[in-house]
Measured scan of single mutants.
Amino acid sequence: AVTGSQTALLLRAFEKDRFPGIAAREELARETGLPESRIQIWFQNRR
């Protein structure tokens, strides 16, 4: 499950760019500790 702090970080990124590229998703994966594929799905679901 995604924690509150991970969600906050993802929401901030989403406000800046609703369609992040692979580099941005990989950076978010490093920052959150989540797999990049999970980040991609999160953005798809959020849109």
Rank of each mutant, 00 (worst) to 15 (best):
L28I: 08
P35K: 06
Q6R: 06
K16V: 09
D17M: 06
E15K: 11
G21R: 04
Q6W: 11
F14T: 02
E31R: 12
A29T: 04
Q40A: 14
E31F: 07
F43P: 00
K16I: 11
P20A: 03
A13L: 07
R47I: 08
P35G: 05
A23L: 11
T3A: 05
R18M: 13
P20I: 04
A13C: 13
G21N: 13
F14A: 02
G4C: 15
E31H: 08
L9S: 06
D17Y: 05
R12K: 13
R47N: 11
G4H: 14
A1R: 12
L10W: 01
D17R: 03
F14I: 02
R47W: 06
L9H: 07
L9P: 00
I22A: 13
T32S: 05
K16L: 11
R46K: 12
Q44S: 09
P20N: 01
E26S: 08
W42D: 01
A13N: 03
L11C: 13
D17H: 07
R30N: 06
E27C: 08
N45S: 08
E36V: 14
K16S: 07
R12H: 07
F43A: 02
V2Q: 05
L34A: 02
L11T: 10
P20S: 01
G21D: 13
P35N: 07
R38W: 15
I41E: 15
T7P: 00
A8G: 06
G4M: 14
G21Y: 02
Q44R: 09
L28Y: 03
L10M: 04
R25Q: 06
G21T: 12
E27M: 12
K16H: 09
A8D: 09
L34F: 03
Q40F: 12
E31M: 14
R47A: 05
V2G: 04
R12E: 09
R25C: 12
A1M: 13
Q6F: 07
R47P: 02
I39L: 03
A8C: 14
E15S: 09
A8Y: 09
I39T: 00
F43T: 01
T7K: 14
S5C: 15
E31L: 15
G33A: 04
L10Q: 00
G4T: 14
A8S: 09
A8T: 09
R18E: 08
A1Q: 13
N45Q: 13
R25V: 15
P20K: 02
T7D: 10
N45G: 06
F19E: 06
L11R: 07
A13F: 11
R12M: 10
E26Q: 13
N45A: 11
P35R: 04
A23N: 09
E26L: 15
K16C: 07
F43N: 00
R38L: 15
R18V: 05
R47F: 04
A29R: 03
Q6G: 03
S37F: 12
Q44T: 07
N45P: 00
E31S: 11
F43L: 03
L34E: 01
E26K: 13
R18C: 10
G21P: 08
R12W: 06
L11N: 10
A8Q: 11
S5N: 12
P20E: 00
R38C: 15
A1W: 13
Q44H: 10
A24E: 10
A23F: 09
E27R: 14
L28K: 02
S37N: 09
A23P: 05
P20Q: 00
T7I: 14
R25Y: 12
L34D: 00
L28D: 00
R38V: 15
F14D: 01
S5W: 15
P35E: 09
L11A: 06
A23W: 08
R25N: 02
R25S: 03
G33I: 01
L34T: 01
A24H: 04
I39F: 02
D17T: 08
I39R: 01
A24T: 08
L9W: 06
R46F: 09
E26D: 06
A29Q: 04
N45L: 12
R30A: 07
P20C: 03
E27Q: 14
R30G: 04
E31W: 08
L34V: 04
R25L: 15
G4Q: 14
I41M: 13
I22S: 10
P20R: 02
L11K: 07
F43I: 02
L10T: 00
R38S: 13
R25D: 01
R30Q: 07
Q40C: 14
A8P: 01
P35H: 09
L11W: 07
G4Y: 10
L11Y: 05
D17P: 01
R18S: 08
L34K: 02
A1K: 13
S5Y: 15
E27Y: 09
A24S: 07
R12I: 11
F43M: 02
E15W: 10
A13Q: 04
R46S: 06
S37H: 12
A13D: 00
S5D: 14
I41S: 11
P20F: 03
I41N: 09
P35W: 03
R46I: 07
W42R: 00
G4E: 15
L11P: 02
L9G: 02
R18G: 05
I39P: 01
R30E: 05
I41Y: 08
D17C: 15
L9E: 03
T32E: 01
R25T: 09
T3Y: 05
F19Q: 05
Q40H: 12
A23E: 13
E31C: 13
N45R: 09
W42A: 00
T7E: 15
G21W: 03
R30K: 12
G33V: 01
D17L: 04
R25G: 02
P20Y: 02
N45I: 10
E26G: 07
R46Y: 11
R47D: 04
A29W: 02
A1S: 12
L10Y: 02
S5I: 13
I41Q: 15
R18I: 05
A29I: 04
A29C: 05
R12V: 07
V2T: 07
R30L: 08
L34R: 00
L28S: 00
Q40W: 10
I22L: 14
W42S: 00
T7H: 15
I39H: 02
E31K: 12
L9V: 14
I41W: 12
S5K: 14
